[in-house]
Each structure stands twice: as C-alpha cells, then as structure tokens.
C-alpha cells in the first residue's frame, strides 16, 4: 500500500481538478439561468428550455450523461481531450443542480428588496447585479459546497471513458499487481477526507447562514 500510494497522487489531483473546474463552470451557468428563471415568467421560452434541461439532468444517471458526452461530441465534430470531455459531462450534470440551487436562493430573497431598489430608481439588471445576486450567492454557498462533494464522487464514474483519475488509476494498478482489496481500501481513504471535508464545509456554511438570519430576526 505504501509503495503504490505516491502513484495515486497525480490521479487524485486530476480528480480534484476535473471536479472543481466543472463546479466553477456550472456555478456561473446555474447562476445565469437560475436568475433568468426566477425573474421572468414561467412561460418564457428560455425558462421552458431550462426547466426541460433540469428535468433531463435530474432524471438520468450520470453514467448515461458521460457516455453521451463521450460518444456524441465527436459526432458533431468536436474532438477534445478526454479530460475536457469529462469536464463537459460533469458541467452538464452539475449545471442542472446549480440552476435549481440558484433559482431557489434567488426566489427566497424578500420581495421588498426588489421594491426598495425600484424606489431608488434601479433597473431590473442593476438590481439583480448589485442587490439580489450578492445576497443569493451567500445563500447558495452551502448547497454549492454539497454539490462539490457530489461532483468529486461523480468524477469516479469518468473512469468508464478512461480518464486517468483516481478510480481508473487504481483499476490499472489492480490489473498490474492483483492487490484488489488493498487498492480499493486505499482509494476509499483517499476519497473520504476530500468528500467529507467539502460536506463539512457545507454544514459549517449552512450553520453560519442560519445563525446570521436568526440574529437579524432578533433585531427586528
């Protein structure tokens, strides 16, 4: 186990890289469509499309989405490195969740804020950028941290398209050394701290948010 440990570190870095790049991209996609979703009416064509998209992402397994990205991207003439195919697949998956997260946090913000900024003569765009979204981002953070831990776990599935991340590297080493149980245990112990770490960050942020909101209630 000690012997192979250093050989699993570069793949671990690939795992972290692929999940966080996808999280970063999905965060902004989610924020953009989430705010459009929550501001405009339900029958707006962009909203209909994004709701349909969210439905598809939430109701299909991630392995299908990864296969789809892997097999369909070359069909439409986009030939990418397998790493970036992985990033696209995970972003596609995570954006669906992020849209829901940002929509929920933006709609949870008090209506009075919109009215107040209207009174101050702000347009809708300025209101969103300066008033609503900064508050919404704070409320999105716990769920986003949770999403990060989901993504790290989902990145293990990228082994099916032969991206050399932690799980795939361990499979390869298993093939060489036939030490199945040891390598699986090692993998589990490499994944555990990262995934649990991010989900503890999520809990911490959630608690911090809860404390703040209760404090405001007391002042009122």
């Amino acid at each position: 186990m000690v012997e192979v440990f250093p050989r699993l570190l570069p793949p671990l870095w690939v795992t972290i890289k692929v999940s966080f790049i996808s999280l970063f991209l999905a965060f902004f996609i989610g924020l953009f469509f989430g705010s459009i979703n929550s501001v405009f009416s339900k029958l707006n064509p962009i909203n209909l499309v994004s709701r349909f998209y969210v439905w598809i992402v939430l109701c299909t397994p991630i392995i299908i989405q990864i296969y789809a990205a892997y097999l369909l991207l070359p069909k439409i003439g986009i030939k990418l490195d397998v790493f970036w195919v992985g990033v696209i697949a995970l972003t596609f998956n995570s954006a669906g969740y992020q849209i829901e997260i940002s929509r929920a946090s933006i709609t949870s913000i008090d209506k009075g804020q919109y009215e107040a900024s209207k009174t101050l003569g702000m347009g809708l765009f300025t209101t969103m950028i300066y008033i609503i979204i900064p508050q919404a981002i704070k409320r999105m953070l716990p769920a986003t941290a949770n999403e990060a831990s989901h993504l790290i776990k989902a990145s293990a599935v990228l082994s099916v398209i032969a991206l050399l991340e932690l799980h795939k590297a361990a499979i390869n080493l298993q093939g060489n050394s036939f030490k199945f149980i040891e390598l699986l245990a090692l993998q589990a112990f490499l994944y555990l701290p990262i995934v649990l770490g991010t989900s503890y960050i999520a809990n911490f942020l959630q608690k911090k948010n809860d404390d703040k909101s209760s404090r405001i209630d007391l002042v009122k």
């Binding site: 776990k153 293990a156 699986l184 993998q187 994944y191 555990l192 995934v195 649990l196």
Partner: peptide, 22 residues
C-alpha cells in the same frame, strides 16, 4: 454512514464486487 456518503458509489460497488468473494 460517513463511509457510504464519503466514498464514490462506483468505488463502493467495486469494493463489494471484490470483497464478497474474498
């Protein structure tokens, strides 16, 4: 509980797959 949450499902599936015959 923390183990099932913290380890990717794919890894858990392969653990069971290899550990049961073991």
């Amino acid at each position: 509980v923390e183990f099932t949450r913290g380890v990717p499902q794919l890894v858990q599936i392969s653990i069971i797959y290899f550990a049961l015959p073991y």
